[in-house]
Design a protein around this nucleic acid. Structure first.
Length: 472
DNA sequence: GGCGGAAACA
DNA sequence: TGTTTCCGCC
């Protein structure tokens, strides 16, 4: 018998990149960091409850940033038990599981306050999040605030390294190049050979080319942390927990996304910026300076836009610039199926929908909330629980209503992007990712025929000399 | 209530 | 690996 328990039902029916609302992206289910398991983890379940207004009676943010109080421990335990098909779950067991997070520094207890815990968001985000978006994550940026001091989050190379355990340890093979420069802001550089998508030959860029259109992914890189930056939405802001407008999260904890530039980050992320980086508007210009060889002044780790002057419909993927686009603008710039809108999606919070909300008490009857809901938080009755993963299919092409019945690519149990219609795919024009940054149908360059590469060199030279004479 | 050890489990 | 279960201790 199928398990009507929520272990399957709660998984987003579509890649979270596409899921509107304050849904957690795929990484929240940790398929990468928990190989072989797509089961929801407790900390994420807690976050889910916290983001649902209807559960504010049982659990809610309270006190310092990241701090929450379990108002109804039994109910939270019951919900968790439902989710995990553990009918005998209770708060004692749940709290033991929460204590398990202490060591992992995902959570810690607020001493002196009953049933009160506090998230270490920097850890939560870091563990699951690619480094660049993490840098732009309001959770991460707000870490300073909720630490209750001006202390910076632990961004030491050791800390970063510890968060990417699959990478080789620090040192020559580590995340950071050390030893060649003195300690300090310039002392430890993210190694570009560890992040091939940051250096990629002669130039550098901030966008995974997949966001700009398909291209032949060859040669393929090995991404040691299991995160492929070329996967759709890998760098998308939509791929990180969204700031629900008017939501559970006090607005003062979330800086204006326009201010959420890397420059706000402490070392070592600040070193990722080109010098004198001030605003998103100048990003492209700065990018031209640093785009020539992937370094700036011999320093590694600069991130810059390619020196392509044309506007790119990048939507929200621009670091520090993405929020400048409204959802509508984003949607218009990247209509579905173009292959350009990967990682984009409407964002709204369930808390604001004002319709169809059920209290936890109402849910106890096992009535599933809004079947059309994108939310993965749909608590159902335990009575049909039999197994946890019977409905999981590791390899499949599935159709989901939310995607207009377009087939969704599912590889190795990991949901991928929606396959755009074949007709929408631009021709694979270049094996090099950067080439995809160029317009698909660029205007023919207005260069004199003498500079045409098809002309033999000596003829070109002669033509050039002729032109010089004419000009003089 | 809160903590952590330990064993079991999937 | 991430819990779940049990337990003794504070």
């Amino acid at each position: 018998m199928d398990c009507n328990c929520v272990s399957d039902l709660l998984l987003p029916p579509v890649p979270a990149l596409w899921t509107p609302g304050f849904a957690f992206p795929d990484w929240a289910y940790k398929p990468e960091s928990s190989p072989g398991s797509r089961q929801i983890q407790l900390w994420h379940f807690i976050l889910e409850l916290l983001q649902k207004e209807e559960y504010h009676g049982v659990i809610a943010w309270q006190g310092d940033y990241g701090e929450f109080v379990i108002k109804d421990p039994d109910e939270v335990a019951r919900l968790w038990g439902i989710r995990k098909c553990k009918p005998h779950m209770n708060y004692d067991k749940l709290s033991r599981a929460l204590r398990y997070y202490y060591n992992k520094r995902i959570l810690h207890k607020t001493k002196g306050k009953r049933f009160t815990y506090k998230f270490n968001f920097s850890k939560v985000v870091l563990v699951n999040y690619p480094i660049l978006d993490m840098a732009n994550s309001p959770f991460f940026l707000a870490q300073n605030h909720f630490n209750g001091s001006s202390a910076t989050p632990d961004c030491s190379p050791e800390a970063i390294q510890s968060l990417f355990p699959r990478l080789p340890d620090t040192g020559r093979g580590g995340l950071f190049d050390r030893g060649t420069t003195a300690p300090g802001p310039e002392g430890d550089k993210l190694r570009l050979d560890t992040f091939p998508f940051l250096s990629s030959g002669a130039q550098c860029y901030t966008k995974p080319p997949s966001l700009l259109g398909p291209y032949p992914r060859s040669p393929s890189f090995d991404y040691p942390w299991g995160f492929n930056p070329y996967l759709p939405g890998a760098f998308s802001l939509n791929n990180c927990p969204k700031l629900p407008p008017g939501s559970l999260y006090p607005s003062q904890f979330y800086p204006n996304p326009l201010q959420s530039s890397l420059s706000q980050l402490p070392h070592p992320f600040s070193s990722l910026l080109p010098p004198a980086e001030t605003g998103a508007g100048e990003r492209g210009v700065a990018g031209q300076n640093g785009g020539a060889n992937g370094t700036a002044g011999g320093q590694a780790g600069r991130i810059c836009l390619p020196p392509y002057p044309g506007s790119l419909p990048l939507g929200r993927t621009d670091i520090g610039n993405g929020a400048a686009l409204s959802e509508r603008e984003t949607a218009e710039a990247n209509p579905p199926g173009t292959g350009l809108n990967l990682g984009l999606g409407a964002v709204s919070l369930g808390a604001g929908n004002g319709t169809g909300q059920q209290s936890p008490t109402e849910r106890r009857g096992g009535v599933k909330q809004d079947p059309e809901s994108d939310s993965d938080l749909e608590i159902t009755d335990l009575s049909d629980c039999s197994s946890e993963n019977e409905n999981e299919h590791e390899f499949s092409i599935r159709k989901d209503a939310g995607l207009g019945n377009r087939p969704q690519l599912v590889l190795d149990g990991k949901k991928g992007s929606v396959l755009p219609p074949i007709t929408s795919l631009p021709p694979p024009v270049s094996p090099h990712p950067l080439k995809s940054l160029m317009p698909i149908n660029p205007h023919p360059p207005s260069i004199p025929p003498s500079l045409s590469p098809s002309m033999p060199l000596h003829e070109r030279h002669r033509e050039t000399e002729t032109l010089k004479m004419i000009h003089s």
